[in-house]
Amino acid sequence: MDFLELLLSLAQSTLRFTPILIFAAMAGVFSERAGIVDIGLEGKLLIGAFVSATVAHYVGFGLAGMLAAMGACIVFGWLHGLATITFRGDHVISGLAINFLAVGLTKTIGHALFAKGGDTPNLGGPDSTGWERLQALIPKQVWLDIAPGLSENPLLLSIVSIHGWLIILAFVTVFGTWWVLMQTRFGLRLRFVGEEPQAIDTAGASVTAYRFAAVTIAGALCGIGGAYLSTSNIASFTPGMSADMGYLALAAVIFGKWRPFQAMLGCLLFGFLFAVKDRLDGASQGILTQIPSQFFEALPYILVVVVLAGFVGTARAPKAVGRPYVKERE
């Protein structure tokens, strides 16, 4: 019974952490499959989280925050595209620049707007209807306003106002990524852009356009991931809240050999490790008190290294990843 409870709470926490990783990982799959290394996932998550929480605070509507976050992350995706596609810059350096910018900008602007050491105000006060959070698609209070009769049926009410449509969306995104990449002409060409850009060029399509499409999609997905982080999972933004999740997502992409479903498994694994860390951090679980809490803090990161070193020895990245495409002249 106790064990079952532990398992259930672990599963629940895993589900809470995984969507962040999944959105970022799918963004990574799109970028990397098109030949763009995206270390900037981390920074874009942070920017998405900040913009979402800020806009949701001012507008009072969580979806607006999410859309704004998607927009902001797309802009930073384009910046990455401009640097790597147009100006053939190093992908890792460009991504790192975005990560630094994300840390600096969110803290500076957050301080200027709210003067709370970079935090954004807490969303969803006690008397709110819940629209400012991204939890239920239609908040409980709104359901009750529409159909007062629902209050007599708490089960139905909790089902229709379920707090987790973004979690479901995350898994739908995995399927969507697979479908777009593997089942559509767009996806086929996108993959070719990452493997043999010359082939796409010869076929008369624009490598540049496909790569920009990839960074745009990646930006949008990071925006959703960031919005989930600050507006759904927690009710505010705190500086540095992305906590290396973007890098973990990238590790999950490599772990999944650049395939959406396998990458999702990686995300679930890392999400589970975070859940374990969260659950056991300073917990008094019998024998576990002997182990310092810092060990659990480090556990996800240690296992990422082990997984990358052990499982992915033979993984093959898309052939043209990280390389600029220079059209042959004459």
Partner: peptide, 28 residues
């Protein structure tokens, strides 16, 4: 003058961007 000191990190990002990633933009 009320600026968070993390603006230096943003500046650092900008320098990395312009000297590293967008290097060719300036050269071209």
């Amino acid at each position: 003058l009320d600026i968070d000191k993390e603006i230096v990190v943003a500046l650092q990002g900008l320098v990395v961007l312009f000297t590293g990633a967008l290097y060719l933009m300036v050269v071209w």
